[in-house]
Write a protein that binds this DNA or RNA. Structure first.
Lengths: 122, 122
DNA sequence: CTGATATTCAACCCTGAGGTTGAACAATGC
DNA sequence: GCATTGTTCAACCTCAGGGTTGAATATCAG
């Protein structure tokens, strides 16, 4: 029994072209379910399920107005993803930078001592 | 038979805490498979499968050195995700901005005409 | 009340994801 | 050659994802 966290659910929700298309459509404004489903080559029910996935990930908010359900895009979870990715890339860059510094230090050391075959591949 | 595109595969690969942890570990530098698997409460085989998912998404590159397989993080696919998200949020902001402009225009119009109760619910 | 429209619920199917275990393969050490 | 280490391959299990169809629910229009 896993307890999927928010990042899991957001990324999972985004990992489907239909759902990304839905979000794209919604970022142009509130839309009814049927209207949203119309362009897709699948049943209304299938789209309804996709919407539930997006709601679970809090990427979509539903507002009921009579028998119509109006959906809107709520971008906050994507900010969280962006933050995770930024952190990840910061790590990565930091490591590359450290590696670079190290290599330069080695070069300087090599320059002041008899050059004895430094194999810096790449 | 769907043909999942790169975004799909990248996001799917990222939508799992084990795999995100693997990437985090790898962003600190190249690591052997066994070493990578050690902290996880699952079989080596399970981790090996996760790695294959990451490779399929091109988030990880494998370099064979003797019997050891050295894995490294390759961030490019995450850049693509970042680009998609930026575009998405640009859309969203643009729409909010347009909405805002519209509302302000209406307010100005309302201020210069007798308010005649148009049922703008909410 | 009746019928049409908007939407979900429920049951089912198929495929793939994530895990297991056991065997196979490849490189190393003696 | 032989045992050991690093890693994958293969078969299997269970469960969730994404789709279908058919029925149920809620609202609106007459």
């Amino acid at each position: 029994m896993r307890a999927p966290n928010h990042l899991d659910q957001t990324l999972l929700a985004l990992a489907d072209p239909t759902r990304r298309a839905i979000l794209q459509r919604l970022s142009a404004g509130e839309t009814r379910v049927t209207e949203l489903a119309e362009p897709f080559a699948m049943s209304l029910n299938a789209v309804s399920k996709h919407i539930r996935v997006l709601e679970r990930a809090r990427l979509v908010h539903r507002r009921r107005e009579g028998r119509e359900h109006l959906l809107s895009f709520t971008p906050k979870p994507m900010d969280d993803v962006a933050r995770w990715m930024d952190a990840q890339r910061a790590n990565w860059s930091a490591r590359l930078q450290a590696l670079d510094d190290l290599l330069q230090a080695e070069d300087r050391a090599a320059a002041s001592t008899p050059p004895d075959k430094k194999g810096r591949t790449r």
